[in-house]
Write a protein that binds this DNA or RNA. Structure first.
Lengths: 144, 144
DNA sequence: CTCGCTGTTGCGAATGATTGCAATAACAAA
DNA sequence: TTTGTTATTGCAATCATTCGCAACAGCGAG
C-alpha cells in the first residue's frame, strides 16, 4: 500500500521525500480516520525532521491526487483516511460519532437527477452525511 | 423577518440583546451568503459595542435553532444565510463559486434508502454538494 | 421601580489550519 | 559523480474560530 502510493506520486511528477514517506506510512498503517495533528504527534515522537505544516501540505496533496479522503466529521478537526476501496459515502452519527461507510450506489441516482434537472455535475465521491445511527435512535427515544 | 426571528428566540427562552438584534439585522438584510467576519466588519464600522466572539456565538445559536443555515462552501471560511424558504440543498460550483439552490425533493429518496438499508436517520436539510455547474462544464471543455 | 437570577458579553488566550519566504534537497541531465 | 533546476521544507507569522472566565445586563418576580 505504502509503495503503491509512492509510485503513484512519483509517476505524477512529485518528489519522494522522507517526510512524505513518513506521513504516508502513518496514514496507511492506521485503520481508522486520523487527524493531521495525530499523524504529526506520532511521528514527532521519534524524529524532529518533520513540521506540522508539511503534514498539512502533504495531506492536501494526497487528497488532491485522490489517494486520501478528507472528511469533516462535524467536530473541530478534519479527519483523513487512505482510499483502500473505491468511492463510498460516510454516514456520521451526531450522537456517538460512529462512521458508517455506505455504498456509493446509494447516491448514483441523485447524481443523475442533479445533472438532468440542474445541469450540475456533482462530485459525490466520499461525501459525508450527518444524522443518527440505529443504536442512538433507540437510545434517544428512551431518554426523551 | 427581523421581528420574526426575535420573537422566535424570545419564545424559546433566549434574551434579546442589542448585539443579537444587530447581527440578525445584518443577516436578514443581506441577500447572499455572508461570513461571520463580514457581519462583524459591517457592524463594527458604526459601533464598538460588538465583539467578534459574540458574532460567532450568535450565529451558532441561530443555526442550532434552525433559523439560519451554515454552509461550508469549500473555501477557508464558513458562510451563513437566513432560512427564508424551507429546506433545500446547495450545489456549489468548484470552478466559479456559484451556489445553486436545489429542491429538497431531490434527496428525499436518498434519505429513505439510507434509513431502510443502514437504519441511519440522515439529516439532509441544507447539505452542500460540490461539482461543476452548467456554464463551467462547457467552459472547461473548451480550455482542455 | 427595584432586585436578583442567570443568560450573555467582552476580553484575551488558545486552537486547528494556512501562508510567505528563504533555505534545502530530490532527481534528471551532463 | 557533479551540477542546476525547481519542488519541497521549516519557520514564524497569520488566519478563522473557539473557549474560559469575570463583568455585565435582560427580564420576570415582587
Amino acid at each position: 500500500m505504502q509503495d503503491k502510493y509512492e509510485t503513484k506520486l512519483r509517476v505524477r511528477g512529485y518528489r519522494m521525500t522522507p517526510q512524505r514517506e513518513m506521513i504516508i506510512a502513518a496514514l496507511t498503517s492506521s485503520d481508522h480516520h486520523i487527524t493531521a495533528e495525530e499523524i504529526f504527534a506520532s511521528l514527532h515522537e521519534r524524529t524532529r525532521a518533520l513540521n506540522i505544516a508539511t503534514v498539512y501540505r502533504t495531506l492536501d496533496l494526497l487528497v488532491e491526487e485522490g489517494l486520501v479522503c478528507r472528511t469533516d466529521l462535524g467536530g473541530d478537526r478534519v479527519y483523513y483516511a487512505p482510499l483502500r476501496h473505491g468511492p463510498h459515502i460516510h454516514l456520521v452519527c451526531r450522537h456517538c460519532g460512529q462512521v458508517i461507510e455506505a455504498d456509493y450506489s446509494q447516491i448514483a441516482p441523485l447524481k443523475k437527477r442533479l445533472q438532468e434537472q440542474y445541469d450540475f455535475a456533482a462530485d459525490l465521491k466520499h461525501v459525508s452525511f450527518f444524522g443518527i445511527c440505529e443504536t442512538c435512535q433507540s437510545t434517544e427515544q428512551v431518554e426523551n
